[in-house]
């Protein structure tokens, strides 16, 4: 401040220079403030998503606590029946976990091989034109409302399956799982394809230069190079399958049933939640509390898969 006043008194010749410096200075300060504001806004945006996650976890845990006054964690994990709404209430989560794992397992046996094969084809084999045509259709598959898939499983796939297994019940996990697998294919294929296409050309060239075919290059070099991205795609698919609700609610049945047989009818965690949540639930009732306990279980399962995915990613991180 002192200097500026002194400078302005120096004379006409100096004047333009001084005012120039001054305006440049204020310009710079303005920019700093603007950047601060932008930075803060971005930080708040990031913070809000983290905060939401923590809030959800907190509410799930907090609201589950009363539930565990009706039963113990051990009983919750070991009891073979889940009938929290009955007079003779039983609080074993395993039937719902089994239903979730079986439908997820069926879905993954469809989605992982199909998704990976499609990704390899699109990334390594398909001519540009084919890729640009196929991708929107795949994305469309991911955009179909899941209730439509559920209905498709119930009225199309189940009757078809019943032609092969006449004993198959109208609600069954096989049909729901298969259709869920189809729904997940685009999630698996698009993330895997991105990972494969990110593999630098010089690695492929190294393989071709050794006399490898396109297929050998894809399977022996590109896939291992993209492994962590492909693993991430699988984890995304698993998370989608574990949390998927409408398809299983519509096509797999609503009865909790502790079974590992895909040909039976059973409820999943998510199907149970939607079923109970649709009813009229007084706050604090056992039904209300059971939703949170089931929701917490679902979240922990997804968390475990994500941790496995994170570990895989670190273990096989890409170094080109």
């Amino acid at each position: 401040m002192n200097r500026t006043t002194k400078d302005t008194t120096l004379g006409i010749m100096e004047c333009p220079t001084v005012s120039e410096t001054n305006s440049r200075l204020s310009h710079k300060q303005g920019r700093i403030i603007k950047e601060r504001v932008i930075e803060t806004l971005l930080f708040l945006a990031a913070l809000s998503s983290v905060a939401t996650t923590f809030a959800i976890v907190f509410i799930l845990v907090y609201e589950s606590i009363p539930f565990f006054q009706h039963t113990t964690v051990l009983n919750f994990l070991t009891d073979t029946e889940w009938t929290p709404l009955f007079d003779e209430a039983r609080y074993g989560i395993m039937p719902l976990v089994a239903g979730t794992l079986v439908t997820t397992g069926v879905a993954l046996t469809v989605a992982i091989p199909m998704g990976t094969i499609i990704a390899i084809y699109l990334s390594e084999f398909a001519p540009h034109r084919v890729r640009e045509t196929v991708k929107p259709f795949l994305e469309l598959l991911g955009a179909v409302p899941t209730v439509v898939f559920g209905y498709f499983a119930l009225v199309v796939v189940t009757p078809l399956l019943q032609k092969i297994y006449p004993d198959l019940p109208g609600f069954n996990m096989l049909s729901a799982g298969l259709v869920m697998g189809i729904m997940i294919i685009p999630y698996v294929s698009s993330v895997s394809e991105d990972a494969m296409r990110a593999v630098p050309m010089h690695l492929r060239e190294g393989s071709y230069a050794m006399g490898a075919t396109r297929f050998q290059t894809a399977v022996r070099v590109v896939v291992p190079s993209a492994f962590s991205g492909i693993a991430a795609a699988f984890i995304l698919g698993i998370s989608r399958a574990v949390g998927e609700t409408m398809i299983v609610a519509v096509a797999a049945g609503m009865q909790p049933n502790l079974t590992w047989k895909a040909t039976e009818s059973a409820a999943t965690i998510s199907a149970f939640i939607v079923q109970v949540a649709l009813g009229d639930l007084p706050h604090g009732s056992i039904g209300y509390q059971s939703i949170f306990a089931a929701g917490l279980t679902l979240m922990l399962m997804t968390l475990v898969f994500n941790i496995i995915g994170f570990w895989l990613k670190k273990r096989f991180r890409e170094e080109y």
């Binding site: 690695l203 060239e205 190294g206 393989s207 230069a209 050794m210 022996r220 291992p224």
Partner: peptide, 30 residues
């Protein structure tokens, strides 16, 4: 042609495999 004429590139481009498997690559491909 590539089975008879091999190439070394500007930037080292080993595959994401063990040292052994890198060297064995061309043999396995055959």
């Amino acid at each position: 042609v590539r089975m008879r004429i091999s190439m070394v590139f500007q930037k080292p481009n080993p595959f994401p495999k063990s040292i052994f498997e890198n060297v064995a690559y061309g043999l396995r491909v055959r």
